[in-house]
């Protein structure tokens, strides 16, 4: 269940919206969306420098005094590659946080559970703060939290698909069993999808494509921020139970004679 405050590896987050930085039309649009989202956790990827066109340094566009930088291991096809990328990312950024993602399948980008678990074991032992991106597998999530990952990050639906939560039954079990924060990552296309995840009891959500491909990424980032905040306030407010039959909200006494 959602805790009052979101704490990951000793760092407190007042925002439950994590934001990815891929696919934005330019760094100005990305910077504005990050600002509007109110996020305190921002993911980045590591790639070869293009010899012909080195381009801009993305870190210059991220306010690291406000947001925790979360390098990902995208591009890794197995545990060895993920560990190699994580070590490079640590050297490049100076932070030990890593979003562990290993998805060799090009069609659905579904994460490889075996390689992810192997890499998580190595990275946790090396002192990384590991946030693993996984399918919505309750047993895998249990195993990962047992070996010391800082969170589990099960998917709602395939990366970038904007389908919302298609893994509901398993997410409910993951949330029920979790002793670490649960971050619903991937597939959230609408603010209501993010609110849905938080109302289910997820501790946070991670979105990228939904913001980056919107006609107005800044406005969409604001919409996601408000949706996540509203849902979190609603959860803490203690919603009434759902039931099959009606229950009158107006008094059933004092009718006119």
């Amino acid at each position: 269940m959602m805790q009052d405050t979101l704490v990951i590896a000793g760092r407190e987050f007042s925002s439950r919206l994590f934001v990815g930085t891929g696919k934005f039309s330019d760094s100005g649009a990305m910077r504005a969306a990050i600002e509007a989202s109110g996020t305190e956790m921002v993911t980045v990827a590591l790639r070869r420098v293009d010899i012909a066109n080195p381009g801009d340094d993305i870190l210059a566009a991220i306010d690291r005094s406000r947001a925790q930088l979360l390098p990902n291991t995208s591009g890794a096809r197995d545990a060895d590659e993920a560990v190699r990328i994580a070590r490079l990312a640590r050297e490049a950024s100076g932070v030990e946080w890593v979003k562990l993602e290993i998805h060799p399948d090009p069609n659905y980008l579904l994460p490889d559970p075996v390689e992810t678990f192997k890499a998580a074991e190595i990275l946790v032992k090396e002192g990384f703060v590991v946030l693993p991106y996984v399918n919505a597998d309750p047993v895998l999530c249990l195993r990962l939290q047992e070996i010391g990952t800082a969170t589990v990050m099960p998917l709602g639906s395939p990366i970038g698909s904007n389908q919302g939560i298609r893994t509901r039954a398993n997410l409910e079990i993951i949330i029920e069993q979790a002793t670490v924060p649960v971050v619903v990552d991937a597939g959230l296309g609408l603010p209501s999808h993010a609110a849905d995840a938080i109302e289910m009891g997820a501790d946070a959500v991670l979105v990228n494509t939904a913001l980056a491909v919107a006609r107005d990424p800044t406005a969409m980032a604001k919409a996601f921020r408000l949706a996540v905040e509203a849902a979190a306030i609603g959860v803490k407010a203690g919603p009434g139970e759902s039931q099959r039959t009606a229950e009158a909200s107006s008094p059933l006494t004092g009718f006119l004679g």
Binding site: G22, K23, R48, G55, I58, I159
Partner: peptide, 10 residues
Amino acid sequence: VELVRFVGGG
């Protein structure tokens, strides 16, 4: 030699 740096990613 591999030279790498951060880029946008989710």
